[in-house]
Each structure stands twice: as structure tokens, then as C-alpha cells.
């Protein structure tokens, strides 16, 4: 008997969509760690830098990333660290070891969420179908992130490039709802063109 677990993502059966140059798909499952702490304690930023190589963002609604590694501002004392799935345990151990003396929390949330990619010229219109959040480039651009609302779902939205290229993180149980909503919106806008 195999002692490895096969994890199937919630949208494993949903085909990627490409319409009018705009792309929608679920990304492979990543490792996700919720980090709580006080950013004025230098030990916190130092531990994050050591473990991930990334600077802890203290400016609201921004993130830093390199390859598949992300450190994302979620609130004034909350961040999310994203990494390759097989790096998660190592990263958690390192962070917990370095943060054990300070008031903090390191919790794995990898299989609580999944992530979609939505990119291309219609991406802003598609988001506007279900969210009042203003994605105009003067308000939201590369390197910025936010938690907001899309339909009935709470999402984390990150913008990776000016194109725009978005990452949308969603709770596992809402993933199908979000994917169907986004793909219907993309179909509508592609037909309108």
C-alpha cells in the first residue's frame, strides 16, 4: 500500500479557459502559511527574510515575490507566505524555530485555499462582474493585493503584471462557485467583443 497521499485540487475537473486573449485556470496547489505577529518586532521580518529570502511587506495591500515564493500583506499583523508545496514543512519549522520567543503564530493553510490565474485584456471586466473593487490601474497595479468580495465569496486578489495578470485565492469550498462565475463572465465579455 502506498503511504503517499494524492491531493486533488477542487477544480481538477474544470478545464482551463482561453477566450479573446484572456486566460482562466486553476494553478497547481501551493504551500500556504498564515503568519501573525507584530511587524515592529525586528525578529519577525528577520525570520521571514531568512526563511523565504523575501522582505516582509509592511505597506498595506502589497506583496513581495520571487518565483513561486510570496509574502503577502493580509492585515496590519497578518501575512500569508506561499511556497512550493514540498517546501511547506521545512519553511514552517524554520519560522517556528526563529519566532518561538516572540508573540506570533505560524499555521499551515495550504489545503484551505486554491488559486486561480486570470490574465489578459478582459480580466478587469470579468472581475467587475462580481466585485465592486476598483481594479483601474490608477487604483490597483502590479505588486498590489487585496482581500475583497466577489459575488458571495471572499477572495484574495494579487496583481502580478500590468497586463493585467491576477492571482485569485479562494476558499476550497467556494472554488467551483468562483470558477463558474468567472468563466460565465468571460464568455459574456468575449461574445460582446
Amino acid at each position: 500500500m502506498s503511504n503517499t497521499t494524492q491531493i486533488q485540487t477542487p477544480l481538477a475537473k474544470s478545464e482551463p479557459l482561453e477566450l479573446a486573449g484572456t486566460h482562466l485556470q486553476e494553478l497547481p496547489l501551493s504551500g500556504k502559511i498564515s503568519l501573525r505577529g507584530n511587524s515592529s518586532n525586528r525578529k519577525l521580518a528577520a525570520a521571514v527574510k531568512k526563511a523565504t529570502g523575501l522582505v516582509l511587506p509592511t505597506k498595506a495591500n502589497t506583496f513581495n515575490h520571487k518565483g513561486e515564493g510570496y509574502v503577502t500583506w493580509m492585515g496590519p499583523n497578518e501575512w500569508q507566505i506561499t511556497c512550493e508545496l514540498d517546501q511547506t514543512n521545512k519553511l514552517i519549522d524554520e519560522l517556528r524555530a526563529d519566532l518561538q520567543d516572540i508573540h506570533s503564530a505560524v499555521v499551515e493553510v495550504s489545503d484551505y485555499y486554491t488559486t486561480l490565474q486570470l490574465s489578459g485584456p478582459l480580466a478587469r471586466k470579468v472581475l467587475a462582474n462580481g466585485s465592486a473593487f476598483d481594479t483601474h490601474p490608477s487604483q490597483f497595479n502590479k505588486g498590489q493585493c487585496t482581500q475583497t468580495r466577489f459575488g458571495h465569496a471572499a477572495i484574495l486578489l494579487q496583481q502580478l503584471s500590468a497586463e493585467p495578470d491576477y492571482r485569485i485565492q479562494i476558499r476550497w469550498s467556494y472554488a467551483q462557485y468562483l470558477f463558474d462565475y468567472l468563466s460565465a463572465a468571460l464568455h459574456n465579455h468575449a461574445t460582446d467583443q
Binding site: 498595506a60 492585515g75 496590519p76 465592486a132 473593487f133 475583497t148
Partner: peptide, 17 residues
């Protein structure tokens, strides 16, 4: 529609609050 200023995130739609 009502907009509310979050002291951290800025102006957002009421439905986020």
C-alpha cells in the same frame, strides 16, 4: 451605494464591511 474608508485599506464598497 455607500463607500467606507478602512483606516488600513482605503475607500471600499460597503459590502466589504
Amino acid at each position: 451605494m455607500m463607500m467606507i474608508e478602512c483606516p488600513w485599506c482605503g475607500k471600499r464598497d460597503q459590502s466589504e464591511f
